[in-house]
Structure formats: C-alpha cells, structure tokens
Amino acid sequence: MATPLSATSISQSPRREVRRAAVLGMSQETRDAWNRLVRRLSGGALTLLGAPGPNRVLLDRARRSGALEGALDDPSAPTREVVIPFTGATPHQRQLWKDSDYKITDLTLPVIRRAHVTMKLLDAEGCRLVLAGHPGDPECLAIAGESRGVAVIESADEAADLPFAPHTGIIFQTSISSQRARTIVEALRHRHRDSKVQVLDTLSPVALRREQTLRDLARESDLLLIIADPADPSGRALYETARWLGRPARIIHRFDDLDPDELQDFRHIGLSAGEFTTDDEIAQVEMQLLNL
C-alpha cells in the first residue's frame, strides 16, 4: 500500500514551502549495507572493489575512513579483506577473489541478489534472456553475469528491434522506473505476438514506493527536485516518473547544481531522492531551498 501524502513532511519559509516525499533516499537494505561497511572500516583498512554504490559521497566517506580501492576484475589488493559493493558482482568475479585467498565481505543488496537468482532461473529454462536496464551499469553487469547471450536493453525501440525467439524471459534492473519496464514489456509483446514472453518482476519494492509517493507529491508541487548522483539509476527513474506526469522537474546532486534565479517562480517545491542519497544530502538541499 502506498504511503499517503499526509505522511509527507513540510517545511516553510516566508518565500516557499518544501515538501519531502513520504519515501525518499536510502532503503533499509542500503542503510544496513552502509552501516556494515562503516563497522568493518572501524576495525582496520580494507579494499573496496568499486564504489560502495553510485554516489560519490559514499565513496569519499569510505576513503576518509581508511578504505583503499581496487577493482572487481583485478584479483589483487593492498589488503587481505576486500569488499564487494552494493551493486554486486558476477559469479566469476567472486570466484577469482576466493581463488586468490582473500577474505570477502559481500555487501550486495538483497534486492539485487534476488534478481541474480531470477536470472539464473530463466537461464535454466533455456529461453532468450532480456534484462531491461542501462547497459554498462554495474548492477546490470553483475545481474547478467555469465548467463548466455543476455540482451540488455533500455528502451521500447530496442525491444522492438530484438529478433524473434519462441520464448523470451525478461527481468528488470531493480532501480529502473516502472514506466520504462512496462513500455519495454509491451513493445516485446507487440513486436512478437507469437512468442511467449515470461516476465519476472525484479523491480525494487522500495523504488516503487518512492515512485508512488513522488506521484502523490506532484499534486501539491510546482517543481519536483530529485536529489541523486548522476550515476544513480534510481534518481533517473524518479526523474522519468516526474516527466511522465508532465511536471516540471530537475535532477540535482547538490544545491549548487541549481540556478537560484530559476527557482524564483516556484513557491511549492517537492523533494525526493535516489536510493544512494544520504540523509544529510537531502537535509542540506532542503535547508538551502528555505534560506534562498
């Protein structure tokens, strides 16, 4: 059930009203993973095999706490303990580090682990595999793993261009918008009417709640601001939702990304934030909006 708009927090200044979406920013899964990393860093240095998640702020904070940096595909590290990031790794990458006798702390988010398992189930059924998501995104690369011939597509046009297959299995990058997922599935079904299209929904439940509360927020806002690192696909998904609703929207990483002059005409601003945006990033933008 969607969280009602009445749960939205409201802040006011003489010039404007700022409403926070009832669900925004980090899910509990991401908070737990981040807190686990912080606890591990308090016990000594370790090596991150990539940014913890797609937000430069998280990487900078981990560095300041003593984290060193490595890469998933390079099985050598300056510390004996290595960390698989929130977005996961392929089975082959995990095995490389195990074979090299490193201690592995795996912070893959549970929702992404479920997508890995779902992809394996479809692969075992022998169907043509489709992953709706952003090619090159770390999460997509990890989910696709070593599954044979996975087609990673991010638009309905790309779905319509896929060659015919008698049986197609499709899952979703956990953080894409529900609108994007739906249009890709509809395009596949429309293009190949004689093909069986099996859809296994791997969208994040929290991402869907963020979307719904953004829809609620849109009814009371002149402008929607999405706070997210440019690399965070969940932020882009919220922006897509706002634009799908026909509402004025901006996606920003910090307040400085805005032109203050363009805010002068907006008295009711709605705030949401992506999966990897921290609470203090949200609070800082809110405070600066009220003080402008």
Rank of each mutant, 00 (worst) to 15 (best):
V57K: 07
H116N: 13
Q288S: 12
T87W: 01
D74T: 11
D257L: 07
T105E: 15
K103S: 13
G66S: 01
E69R: 01
I176D: 02
P54G: 08
V57N: 00
A7W: 00
P230D: 11
L289A: 02
D201F: 12
I184S: 09
G133M: 11
P233N: 02
V23P: 11
L225C: 07
S177C: 06
L131A: 10
A207Y: 08
L109W: 08
A51S: 10
E69H: 01
R80H: 14
T8H: 14
Q212H: 10
L238D: 01
S234C: 05
L49I: 07
P248Q: 13
I252K: 00
D279E: 09
R189G: 11
S175Q: 15
G145L: 01
G145A: 03
E125L: 14
A77R: 04
D265Q: 08
R182F: 01
E139W: 14
G136T: 14
E17A: 12
R250F: 05
Q264L: 13
V130K: 11
D157G: 04
T108D: 13
L141F: 01
G50L: 03
A144D: 09
A33Y: 11
A22R: 01
L49V: 03
L162S: 03
W97H: 05
V206F: 15
V83A: 10
T168I: 14
D60K: 03
T108V: 11
A160N: 01
F164A: 04
Q264M: 05
L271E: 07
S204A: 10
R80V: 04
P78W: 08
A124D: 05
V152L: 02
E154M: 02
I226V: 15
D232L: 07
D256E: 15
A160I: 04
G50A: 07
P110Q: 12
F172V: 11
Y102G: 11
L258F: 07
G25T: 07
F276W: 10
A249T: 13
H253L: 06
G274N: 13
L263M: 01
D73Q: 13
T79P: 02
T183H: 07
P166G: 08
R63M: 02
D261Q: 03
I252W: 06
V285D: 00
P163L: 09
Q284C: 07
R247G: 03
R16S: 04
A165Q: 00
R236D: 00
D256T: 10
K196D: 12
A77I: 05
R148I: 14
E146T: 00
D265Y: 10
P75N: 06
R63E: 09
